[in-house]
Simulated scan of single mutants.
Amino acid sequence: MPTPLKLLILEDNTFDAELEVGRLQAAGYDCDWKQVQTREEFEACLDRPEFELILADYNLPDFDGLSALSLLRERGLEIPFVLISGTLGEERAIESLKAGATDYVMKERLERLAPVVTRALNDRLERANRSAAQQALRDAHRRLQALSVRLLQVEETERRRIARELHDGIGQLLTAVKLRLAGLNPSSADYGSRRGECVAAIDDALEQVRRVSRDLRPSQLDDLGLLAALRSHLDQQASSAGFKPNFTHEGVPQRLAAEIETTCFRIAQEALTNIVRHAQASEVWVTLAGTEEELRLEVRDNGRGFDVAAARLRATAGSSMGLLSMEERATLAGGRLAIDSALSRETRLSLTLPLVPAGAEQA
């Protein structure tokens, strides 16, 4: 099957241009080509750089190949540029390569043209792939830096929150109980009521301990598994935020590998937290589905939506790390995360994780 090729030819001789195209077509290229002869025509083509390759005659009556190459480089265009000449000597050939030409071909040796073009196009593809990989690496590094900074901030914030919970809540309750117990007199008339107050205060303190512990890690996740923990958390969030919860599941084993359960629960937890804080949703749907190979989670709400690209930029800048932390969790577990949303429409989070049976990670 012919290889499509968008080709720009800078050549004042139409016969020579047709010869070059003929050589490429014979080598399997389907050329969509345009011939130009002047600087003005060449610059007009560069203003809409749709071409994949440029063939340029070294000598033209009012223009030349090296000047054309200079114009191409000034615009920062990475289009392979091959010089064609009938009189190009070795010294000028070296000069053209130093100036940035991809290669050169003598007109009396046009049989070299197709291999030169193939190599130039392959080199361009390799450079583009390498550039994309380097950019992806830089982006990942920036995300990692932002996530590391945010992780330290979140850790310190969480420590302050727990310290405040212990001091202001549980600590004060226990202090009050201590003082009441110190003043208890079994022979006094109000002994029974004051003892009851102490028991109630201790019960209150125990409930606060359970709440702090549940916030750190729900016991249901370890004791009963992902389904029970996720359903319980959805109901709790719905009760506090006032939205209607919908929970469905199909084909999910009772227990999964701990890493998979934790990753899925934490991502769902973050998604529900974002819904409560920002979405103003009246209804939320959480769906879990399992196959032999993977676990799929979907969290959907009918709230006001958001600009995903803008949120990702803010997260990379260190503003809010919820989105990045979910993506990092999914990646570390070998999964994929996708978020589909826009302003004034529903938001849909989709997570896919490899389904590893419980205990397999120790095998």
Rank of each mutant, 00 (worst) to 15 (best):
A101E: 01
D103N: 05
Y104A: 04
K107W: 03
R109P: 02
E111I: 03
R112Q: 14
A114I: 05
P115Y: 02
P115W: 01
P115N: 03
R119W: 08
R119N: 13
L121I: 01
N122H: 12
D123G: 09
D123V: 09
E126A: 12
S131V: 11
S131M: 15
S131C: 08
Q134E: 12
Q135T: 14
A136L: 12
A136H: 09
L137D: 10
D139K: 10
R142V: 07
Q145N: 11
Q145K: 09
Q145Y: 07
L147H: 04
L151V: 07
Q153M: 07
E156H: 12
T157I: 08
R160K: 14
R160A: 15
R160N: 15
R160H: 15
R161S: 11
R161E: 13
A163I: 13
E165P: 04
G169F: 00
I170Q: 03
G171R: 01
Q172C: 03
L173A: 01
L173Y: 04
L174E: 05
T175H: 11
K178Y: 09
K178L: 15
R180I: 10
N185M: 04
S187W: 08
S188A: 15
S188N: 03
A189R: 09
A189S: 11
Y191I: 06
Y191F: 15
Y191V: 11
G192C: 06
R194E: 13
R194P: 02
R194C: 03
R195A: 13
R195C: 14
G196A: 11
C198S: 12
A200H: 05
A201Q: 13
A201P: 02
A201L: 13
I202E: 00
D204Y: 08
D204Q: 15
A205M: 00
L206V: 14
E207S: 12
E207T: 12
V209R: 03
R210D: 08
R210Q: 13
R211P: 01
R211K: 12
S213C: 09
S213Y: 08
L216Y: 07
Q220M: 14
L221T: 00
L221E: 00
D223P: 04
D223S: 11
L224A: 12
L227G: 02
A229Q: 01
A229T: 07
R231W: 02
S232Q: 08
S232E: 07
S232P: 01
Q236D: 15
Q237N: 06
Q237A: 06
A238K: 02
